[in-house]
Write a protein that binds this DNA or RNA. Structure first.
Length: 465
RNA sequence: GGCCCCAUCGUCUAGUGGCCUAGGACACCACCCUCUCAAGGUGGCGACACGGGUUCGAAUCCCGUUGGGGCUGCCA
């Protein structure tokens, strides 16, 4: 912990809800700060008026909190620091580092034939209005020190004279970013690789502003889709909030995100946050892009769900059981759910799957899966006789799982089939499906009356088909 | 087009010159366990993009090729 002065920041633009890439960036900044005992700053980059909306900012804060990512300073909003940017831009202009330009995009394009960025047309026109452009040096180079990629060198000739202040006087993100990182004494800039090409511009800006403390960078590999393209809000499912609604636990989401580009020691992929903090090493992060694999996320989530204390699992499941359930809400019975919860917990990959595993308990009539019905009842030899027998035996037997198991086994023996075969038609008749929590526990919780009703109904259904 | 980044099983990764017959996880397949499913157990399938160097020795270092990606806005 020698570096007690480490200061990092997560600076999202409120373009909508926080997406998984942003969440990963936030997490890595946070892990690094916590690992070295540094400071984690939250800064909202809303220099674009369209993004400067409280609801969008609140959404980001809510998602960060959900993930368990807390901040030491902020949230700061760039929309409230316009004065600082105005002074900086004036300074650049007054020292000759920036000049006015009134070219339209079309004019520039016409001159350059779309070849590269701005061509420097207004450099020496001495204008006094328009956008302010940075006068990029035409020789020399800037080296970006990157903890993940090593030194990355950019020749200044490849940098166009980029805009630092808009016609309306507002700063663009490059300027705001440079000014804020200097003012907030940020020492390590951890962000997505898509920002790497803009880094020399920020460094040049900082130098022109008189800054001498060059930060260290760490450009994280992009998170990509199945086509290996950067995750996009338009085509990909990326809103973290959306995953929350789909039944993923924050701890699982966080753990999975940490695995994208970084790997814990000892092949121990599922690990508590304290261990992540203890082990995290920004320099050990991989440089190559990572695919966001929902299958793996599911596996991680399932593991976290199984590890929950049952009471917690029940509590966390409630929103999915009470909001828009597949059964009439008044039929829900917490006690019955609690009775089967341990078995449901072991089978749900997401909390959203929970209702589907217990719906037979709360529906007046179970929804019969046609394929299962066909296979286990219609085309199963002796199914009718099995159902008849089950009705007879279940009517008088002691109503507990052990006894249900015993009489069903006896029935199977009498019919010359394995228990697995004998319970199949009963399961489909009573729960509507061929898979689910253990049958005898399910029957016990459902109750004798409903069980018998459903078995009778199945017989009717079978004879009328 | 220009600039920049990247390259180990299908996917996420371990590997930092000999410990590699390349390890783990997810997914997939088989078997075991078992009242179904799940969980668990055992096993299987499966990768160092290619070509040159450097070296006694290269997945590991260098160069090139190929492939993929990012950036190239008065968005961030």
């Amino acid at each position: 912990m020698a570096e007690v002065t480490v200061r990092v920041r997560f600076s999202p633009a409120p373009t909508g809800f926080l997406h998984v890439g942003g969440a990963r960036t936030a997490l890595f900044n946070w892990l690094y700060a916590r690992h070295v005992g540094g400071t984690f700053i939250l800064r909202i980059e809303d220099t674009d008026a369209a993004m400067s909306r409280d609801d969008l900012v609140d959404g980001i804060l809510r998602t960060l909190r959900w993930l368990g990512i807390d901040w030491d300073e902020g949230p700061f909003r760039q929309s409230q620091r316009a004065d600082a940017y105005r002074r900086a831009a004036d300074h650049l202009r007054d020292t000759g580092h920036a000049y006015y330009c009134d070219c339209t995009r079309d004019q520039v394009l016409a001159r350059t034939k779309g070849e590269s960025g701005y061509d420097g047309w207004c450099r020496d026109r001495g204008l006094s209005a328009g956008v302010l452009r940075f006068r990029s040096p035409r020789d020399g180079q800037t080296v970006v020190r990157d903890l993940i990629r090593g030194d990355v060198t950019f020749d200044h000739v490849t940098l166009e004279d980029f805009v630092v202040r808009r016609t309306d006087g507002s700063a663009v993100f490059l300027l705001a970013n440079a000014v804020d990182d200097v003012d907030m004494a940020v020492t390590h800039v951890i962000r997505g690789e898509d920002l790497l090409p803009s880094t020399p511009k920020v460094l040049l800006l900082r130098a022109a502003l008189g800054d001498t403390a060059v930060p260290v960078f760490a450009h994280l590999p992009l998170i990509v889709n199945e086509k290996r393209q950067k995750l996009s809000k338009r085509r990909d499912d990326v809103a973290v909030e959306e995953f929350r609604e789909r039944g993923y636990l924050p701890e699982a989401m966080r753990n999975y995100l940490a695995l994208l580009g970084w790997s814990p020691a000892n092949d121990q992929e599922i690990l508590p946050i304290e261990d992540m903090v203890a082990q995290f090493d920004i320099g050990a992060v991989k440089a190559s892009p990572a695919f966001f694999d929902v299958k793996k996320l599911d596996a991680v989530n399932a593991e976290y769900i199984r590890a929950l204390p049952v009471a917690t699992f029940v509590r966390e499941s409630l929103p999915w059981l009470e909001t828009d359930p597949p059964w009439p809400p008044e039929r829900f019975d917490l006690a019955r759910f609690e009775a089967v919860a341990p078995m449901v917990q072991e089978r749900a990959r997401t909390l959203a799957e929970v209702p589907g595993l217990v719906d037979f308990l709360f529906l007046e009539e179970p929804e019969i899966d046609e394929a299962a019905w066909d296979k286990a009842v219609v085309r199963a030899p002796g199914a009718a006789a099995l159902l008849d027998d089950a009705i007879k035996l279940y009517r008088d037997c002691h109503w507990d799982t052990g006894e249900l198991h015993r009489v069903t086994a006896t029935m199977a023996e009498r019919h010359g089939v394995k228990l697995a075969k004998a319970q199949a038609p009963v399961r489909v008749a009573v729960t509507g499906r061929s898979v689910g929590p253990p049958l005898f526990e399910s029957l016990q919780v459902l109750g004798r009356r409903r069980t018998l009703e459903r078995l009778e109904r199945a017989k009717d259904r079978l004879s009328s088909s």
